[in-house]
Each structure stands twice: as C-alpha cells, then as structure tokens.
Design a protein around this nucleic acid. Sequence first.
DNA 1: ATGAAAGCGCTAACAG
DNA 2: CTGTTAGCGCTTTCAT
Lengths: 364, 364
Amino acid sequence: MNPVRPPRLVRSVIMDRDHPSGRGQATSKDVAAAAGVAQSTVSYVMTGKRSVTADVRRRVEKAMRDLDYHPNAGARALRGAKTNVIALAVHLGADADVGDTLPYIDTIVEEARNREYEVVLLTTDEGPGGLQRLAGRRVADAFVLMDVRTRDDRLATAADLGCPVVLFGRPADSHGLDAVDFDTGRAAALLVDELAYTGHRHIVVVGDSPEADALEFRFISEFHSSARVRAQERGVTIDIVHRESNGWAGFESVADRILVHRDDRLGIIARTPRVTEWVVQLARLHGLVLGRDVSVVALCTDSTAREFDPAITNVSPEPRELSRRAMGVLFERIVGDDQPPRLELVQPRGITRRGSTTDHGLSE
Amino acid sequence: MNPVRPPRLVRSVIMDRDHPSGRGQATSKDVAAAAGVAQSTVSYVMTGKRSVTADVRRRVEKAMRDLDYHPNAGARALRGAKTNVIALAVHLGADADVGDTLPYIDTIVEEARNREYEVVLLTTDEGPGGLQRLAGRRVADAFVLMDVRTRDDRLATAADLGCPVVLFGRPADSHGLDAVDFDTGRAAALLVDELAYTGHRHIVVVGDSPEADALEFRFISEFHSSARVRAQERGVTIDIVHRESNGWAGFESVADRILVHRDDRLGIIARTPRVTEWVVQLARLHGLVLGRDVSVVALCTDSTAREFDPAITNVSPEPRELSRRAMGVLFERIVGDDQPPRLELVQPRGITRRGSTTDHGLSE
DNA sequence: ATGAAAGCGCTAACAG
DNA sequence: CTGTTAGCGCTTTCAT
C-alpha cells in the first residue's frame, strides 16, 4: 500500500533530522551545516554586516527556510547587548481613562514592529521598580512612559537607567528625558475660537476629573488656563466645571452650573470623550437640541466625534500621531544620537466643524 | 580638604569596580567574587534548587544588594530554555470594543507579574505570523489569545507552537487548546429572568454590532439564542435589534423597533456598555424615565453600571475573574500538566438589581 | 554543602 | 569573500 507517496513536507524533514531533536528549534549551526558554510556566514547573511556571494546567500536562505530557522532572541541579546525590546509603561487600572488609550498603544506596537522591536507591557502602578527590573535584567533596552504626571517618581529612576526613554506628557522636571506632548493649550484655544466666531457669548468647559487631577496632569491645567485666557481675549464669559463625584450623579449635580446661560448663546466644551457623552445626554434631558439650542464642541478623536448624532465639532488629540512621534524620537536615541533632550509638541490638525454647533451669524 | 567623607554610596562602589565597567551591569560572577563563593552557588541561592548554608546565603544576598545585581534575562532564557515571558495577543485596532478591554489586560499583566513573568504585546492583526515569530525566536514561551473568533486562523498555528496557549472565547474548533469563556448564555438568561420576574411583558435585546459579527463571535450568538429561548419559557415576547450603521444615527434608525412596546411593560437588555449609554439616551430622548416608564438591564461591569443615574441593573462579564482563570490554566500548563484540554466557563456572579428597573408587582 | 567546568545560540574579532 | 574561535551570563551536571 501507499506505493506512491507525495514528496515529504518540510516539517517532516525537520522531524527527521537528528540534531534539532524533536520539537527543538533549528539553530544557526544547523543552518550553517545544511548550507555547507560557517556559522558566522549565517550570521552575516542575517545582519548584512559583511558582503556575501550571491550564491552563498541563496544557499543559506534556502537552508533557513527548509529548517524553519528563527534566531534565538535570548542568545542575540546576550551576545549583542541589545534586546530589541521596548518597555511600555501605561496605566491600566480601574480608573484608566478608557476613552482614547487604545489607539496610543496600538500605534506604539505597530511602530515597534516596523523596526523589528517587541513591546513588553508594564503598568504604571509598578512605579520605578518596574523600570529597574526591566532595565536591570536586560529585558528591554528602551522605555516609553505614558500617563506621566507633573511630578512623577518614575522619572528620576528612568533618567538613571542609561537607556533611551521617551515620555508622554510634560512633567515639571523632565530629568533630561525626551518627551512628546499634545498642545492641549492650542486645542483649547481652537475650541474657544470656534465658539466665539460662531457668535456664542458664554462658554462652559466640562471635565470629568476632580479638580485635584488638574494639578497632577499638566494637560488638564493647561487646557483650562488656555481656554480661560482665550475666552477673555474673545470677550466671552467662561466657567470651568467638573463633576463632583463619580458617575452620572456627580455630573448631574453640576448641571445647573453648566446650563445657566442656556438661553443666551451657550457653547459647551467637553474635554474628554466620556464627558462628551454626558453633555449630550444632559442637553437632551433638558430638551435642548444640539446645534440649535446649544452648541457642543469636544476634544476627542474624529471617530468618537462621528459616533454622535449630530456629529460633534471636535479637535482630535491625535493619539496616533503622538505615538508615531514618540517612537520616532525613541529610535533616534536608540541608534544613538547625542542631541540635547527634545520636546515634540504635537499641534492639533485643526478643528472639524460638524453638526453640534450653531452659527449665530456673528462670524467674522 | 574633605577630611571627613561620608561613607561611599553603593553606586560609587559599583563605578569604582573595574570589572563591571562603567555603566555595565554586575554579573553573577561579580557577585560570586564579592561573596567569595562559586558562581554556581549564586545561582542556587536564587533558584533554591540546592540547599545553602545560612551564612553563605547571607553573604551572597548582601553582595547582590551591594552590587545592585539583576540576573540577565537573555542568558537565563538561553541556558534555561525558559523565557519567563508570555505573549498576549489582543485586538487594539480602531474598531476595538474599547468598553471593557482594559481590565482584562490589567489583570493578565498583574497575574503574570505575580509569577515573575513579563508580558509582550501582540496585535490580533499580526495573525498567525506573530505567534510564530515570538515562539520561533524564543521570545515568549506561553500565549494568551484574546478576541478569538468562531473560526480563527491563528488557532491551527497556535496548537502547533508546542507551548502552552490559552484562549479567551470558544472557537468552533479549539484545536485541543485550553480556553476560558464567560457563560454569556447564562447571563442572557439571568437578564431575561429579571425582567420577566418583575412583570415585564416585552423584551428587546440591543447589540451594537451588525448581525454579521454574531457569526464570528460565539458569545454574541449565544447571548441572542439563550435570551430567545428563555423569553419563550417565561412567556414574554422578545425582539433582537442591533444598529444598522456606525454611530448614533445607525442606532436611532432602529429606535422604533426598540420602543414599539413602550407603553406595555417594556424591558430592554443592553449587551455592551456602549449600547447601554445609547439606550439610556434614547429613553431620555423619548421622555421615558428609567425604572418607571421603561426598564433597562445590561451586560456590563459593576463600575460601568454605577456610572449611570439611576444605576443600571446589570450582570457583570467578570473580566478580572476571566483573566485570573485564564492565567491559572496557563500556568498549570507551564509547570507541565498533561490533563486533556480544559474549558473554564466562568459563571456570572449573579444579577445586581439597581434603579433602572421597575417592579411591576408580578414577581413570583 | 560547595566548586569547577561545560555549554545554551549567537556575534564579532581575528585569520586567512 | 569566508572560516575559526572566543566569549556574552547564566544553569547544571559532575566532582568533591
């Protein structure tokens, strides 16, 4: 029986070899043997750090494919003193601002992959210890720190790690580390301008975090102060409101403050996606039609803005652009450049006018 | 000058040593030398695989502290054939169900840390190739696959990796892999029961994904079919509705279907946090008071349920428990157990009655 | 209870 | 252009 057998599959070939026993991986030595070259040649074919005859290269590459060869990351890291892993410290706790954090992470992973890097995850809760562990054990050789607070006890440690680090946000003292940040002040100005230009006389800024957070995160305080200044310049009144406790209840309790000027060209600025949801709900609840009785603008991604009906006039915080820039800076450091520490301040792409805003006909 | 100098700091001691040059890490060899023992003894102090005199142990531990020693992960992996890294494949794309995905990841990272494991991140988009890369290069030696579809092309590959894998979800063919899943059918039954017991006569199930998704993810179709069966058993009418296109608009267009029975003891089941938000909005928009004119129950975490006012009667999908169970199964495989593949079906902890439901006085 | 020594898989001198 | 060789830092026999 079975007089005619199909050609054996690659996998079988591997299984039959005696050196890379059973399930074990083929090593560069096996590849070298199969291709009839030295182990170092295999290495040079991979790294391109030495020129190799076309013929030899072909033989090596074929052997790699036949044996399903993958270089062992541990051995590489050990020898090369380079792990090709970056550590990403991000806040994942129960109180994480779930709204727009995934696109940041997604883009970071993507950018890392484009450069043949892996990403290990680290929670902000682990604090400085986590950084030390990963750097000390040589698991990662570059770090991305998200959710950086104005004063952040991870920074002194991070600066001492002796390897590239990039921050999301602008701490009071950056300890000589590179950082990227979104120009939230500029975003606030754009949002205020939009409301002022379309003839609104009163502006209320609504945030979802207690006042205390404004001190911890610069992007919050900066948003507030910039909005305040701009409103003054534009000659419109402004009030800054945030919820008093968690949940809708803590938000509803400040409803009066939000809606005081509901009958006199009121424009509301929502600082996060979640708060946008609430503001929309609040308006509906009070029988106010968005884009007619009251205007709402928000700092949120375009995709979030479009989820509403009417869609919300918005400025995007550009999560993907921010992550791309951060990774750009990080990899420049990795290849080793000695520039002084850099701050990349990402500008809003602009404001997108959608259905949630009225034009009171007073535009300049 | 400087007649009295303070005792030198640990760091200086390191810097002064000549072997671990400059910024370089101290190695176990350095520790051994400093403690006056063999390198192997240092190793045994760490692993505990051989008994060590209390005195020797103390000396070694002191040397480790003095030199700020951290074992090199690459070297360990190389020698020990164990990376102490698990790979987490998760969907992070633009369409990710942002709602409740962070708690899963948070708990996975936490559980990994408790067992001295690191977590590398992998996007679902990378498909089977990502798994092969990480396993082949020996970056990770165990895998967690989230967002598993009914038919998922990563599974055949995953099963062939030759290392522990655990799935979130129940594919049509699990390829002999372990899996954990939430009993969404039971959850649907609980939600229907709650509405039936409190005297509702019509139930509408609202989902946020198009019908097509129900085929891809078992938890969706199972939720629907279980709800349907249970409603029949309880003698109440049921309709299953989902939005027709993205955003609020696609949702509002099915508003009529949702609210047909608004005047006759209507109970609405929201299948996700996001859809809960919308249903609440829709009700308000139509002047219906939650817990009086209409009842809303949801499949969402307790913390999400409490965000609303009135709080929403809910069944939690238990993200943290699910992750804990998954990691439990995974680590049992890692220490090597030869049980047949397991499916851990996590039961809902129960339903929590809150303000969003009316009791029509017909409870049994 | 401890030491000495071999070697995991790779890269980078050093030789030709 | 290619081969030979010496480790990277650790764990684990094998000896004592």
